[in-house]
Amino acid sequence: MTRIIVFAKAPVPGRVKTRLIPALGADGAAALARVMLIRTLDVAISSAVGEVELCMDPAPGAPSWQGITLPPGLSLSPQEQGDLGERMARAVMRRIDELPVILIGTDCVQISKVLLRDAANALTRADAVMNPCADGGYALFGLNRFDPSLFEGIAWSTASVAARTLARLAALGWRVHVGREVHDVDSPRDLDYWYRTMALGQSRC
């Protein structure tokens, strides 16, 4: 069994997917963020990999989350304060003594049941698993062990995130499985890829 932790912001216009606003408008960008949130949660739950936790910004119960119907079977937690690395580190530390942890966001076109199951299987043989993104970040990061260096001093949302994290894993001497490269939807140029993927029905495979 594995715990999947999904990091997500409430899909509030003007606060999410801001780089898509020139193409979709604030309301359209927020609507897409909402679709991606629910789709990711549905895929995570239906993967049957293990427990699914939604780590929320703002915290559960905040007005920003009102009117959003989340799938049943989730546990909810707050992201609290700090940069992305600090928030992810706290989420991992809360659970790593109980189960292996897989961290994902809601932006990846290719998050699927197969990808999640492959990652969980890899964690039976490796200390860490990663699916890097074409933009240099990562869409999935799974761990059997914790070390703070994996989350400290990283220039988040830059093209160096995956490479720097992999270098730190190598320095720790951990066994690492690197899965296939995937794509996030962050900018207008990514929208065609999103629409093609959805049209081909690849989102839940």
Rank of each mutant, 00 (worst) to 15 (best):
G173V: 07
D57Q: 13
R164V: 10
I45T: 05
N121C: 01
T158L: 04
P100L: 02
P13R: 06
T197S: 15
R90E: 06
V176P: 09
D57K: 08
D27S: 10
S47W: 04
Y138G: 04
A163C: 01
R117G: 12
L150C: 03
R34M: 06
D127Y: 00
R39Y: 00
K9F: 08
T2H: 09
G14R: 11
L70R: 07
M36R: 13
A167W: 00
A199I: 03
E181G: 06
F141L: 12
S149Q: 14
L172T: 01
G61V: 04
A120G: 13
T158A: 06
L24F: 04
L20D: 02
C108I: 02
R34G: 07
P60E: 06
A128L: 07
D147M: 02
M36K: 11
P60Y: 11
S64Y: 02
V109F: 00
A29C: 01
A26T: 02
P22R: 13
E80D: 14
G25A: 09
R117N: 14
E80H: 07
L123K: 08
G73E: 02
S157R: 15
V114C: 06
E86Y: 00
G14F: 05
P58S: 09
L76C: 03
A91G: 10
R180G: 14
R95D: 00
F151M: 14
M1E: 06
S149G: 07
D107S: 12
L191V: 04
T197A: 15
R204K: 06
W65F: 09
A171Q: 12
T124H: 15
A128I: 02
M56T: 02
V114T: 13
L32A: 05
W65M: 07
P13D: 05
C108S: 13
Q66E: 13
G179C: 07
G153S: 07
G73D: 03
A8G: 08
A119F: 00
P58K: 05
K9L: 12
L200N: 09
K9H: 14
R168W: 03
A139M: 02
N121H: 02
G14V: 03
R164D: 15
Q66M: 10
L172A: 08
I68A: 09
I102E: 10
I68V: 13
E53W: 09
R95P: 00
V185D: 04
Y138F: 15
H183L: 06
S149D: 12
S203D: 11
K9S: 15
L116I: 01
